[in-house]
Design a protein around this nucleic acid. Sequence first.
DNA 1: GCAGACAGCCTGTCTGATAGGTTAAATGTA
DNA 2: TACATTTAACCTATCAGACAGGCTGTCTGC
Lengths: 226, 226
Amino acid sequence: MKKIQKVHVHELVSQEIQNYIQESKLKAGDKLPSVDELTRMFGVGRSSLREALRYLEAIEIVRVENGKGIFVRDVDIFRFSGKIKVENEKRFLLCVLDVRRALEGKAIELAAKRITPAQLEELAACVTEYRRMKESGLETSEVDFAFHRQIIKVASNPILEGMMESISVLTKKFFHEPLGNKHLFDATYPFHLTMFDAIAANDPDKALVELNKHMDCVEESIKSVL
Amino acid sequence: MKKIQKVHVHELVSQEIQNYIQESKLKAGDKLPSVDELTRMFGVGRSSLREALRYLEAIEIVRVENGKGIFVRDVDIFRFSGKIKVENEKRFLLCVLDVRRALEGKAIELAAKRITPAQLEELAACVTEYRRMKESGLETSEVDFAFHRQIIKVASNPILEGMMESISVLTKKFFHEPLGNKHLFDATYPFHLTMFDAIAANDPDKALVELNKHMDCVEESIKSVL
DNA sequence: GCAGACAGCCTGTCTGATAGGTTAAATGTA
DNA sequence: TACATTTAACCTATCAGACAGGCTGTCTGC
């Protein structure tokens, strides 16, 4: 008694097209045969083929352009993805915070080691802007976010950057109400200055310590607010 | 003279279905109207609708079951994804290594703090197995990988786990030739023991130091082999 | 009471027809 | 000859109809 896994045609076709791309050593931007040709090649109907294409388009393997044809997307790109079940908002945010500690911690270390004069100037501009907006009593969440983003960029590790980017929807939660309130920004502001100083002094350890102080503030905030 | 962005029907439909799920407050496992009903609802052809479904299936919004219907997938799940261009293999691996340092570093810290007696026993079993295989001269890459995975698990941070999982394809590169050679395993083996001891002693700082020594070995290996 | 036939609903796949986007060659005009 | 326009060939986009086959509850004969 065996449960036979019925394989759908569009799945097969989707696989076959990927094989075809590999075997033909097609590079990014290369054109695949037209839909009609592909249906003949694989001996399937148009609808199955189009469903397969739509699937491959969703996972960014190909790009289908009206009137032009079917093209291969960047091929030597590494894609990562994952999913996490969210049950408890508070616990979830604490988890996000630990991931921030991990990723931003490494980023700030690398930034302190690698920052170039030009990048330092940019970061300094960011800090100046921060101070200016703070003194004017304006909304600082945006410039705060920009500051962190800038550090990630300076670390110049595309994977790190991609991962931070991918959870940026979550990190933004730290910047808006009820979490990202005036009080929290007041509390964390000084650490942005000390972080900057540590980076400017090329002191990774100090930078990391200051970042962790910053994150401790956020952690306190999560625990008290939620 | 404006370039009008022609919107494709299947994209609209895909959006409409997502709206429908939101507005109807459908939960995971809930059934959507049948294909025929949906075509009538949106006034589109069957093929467009099916292409939209295939797209939504690819990004894991719905699940289409033959003979049964269309169902909503887990809805309060957070999905993250990103992509990185790989140009230079060596530089890329060094980037991966830094990300490992970040994520596994945080993981081992958390593990050292949070590990339960039962988990400690499991990890001990892993170490014992490692020793046994090493003494028998057997292939240790698998048990080595299992050891690291176990630590991530103990950290009990689903986001961290998901991120490590998503780059596991890459980390595996460290475990196979030419990088994961006999010499490297010999060099890193002692650190697995010291990491275990540090975790067992609930000493996060020591654990992190030992992990970094381990990673230094791997880094050396990357720099010399490639 | 139960097994098997059956009907109704649903997805899977194929096909023919029509619309419309893209490009380059052919054509007409100054 | 130089340039704008038309046309044809090639593609994708979408619709509608038809048929195959999976799933489930009901109905029927034993």
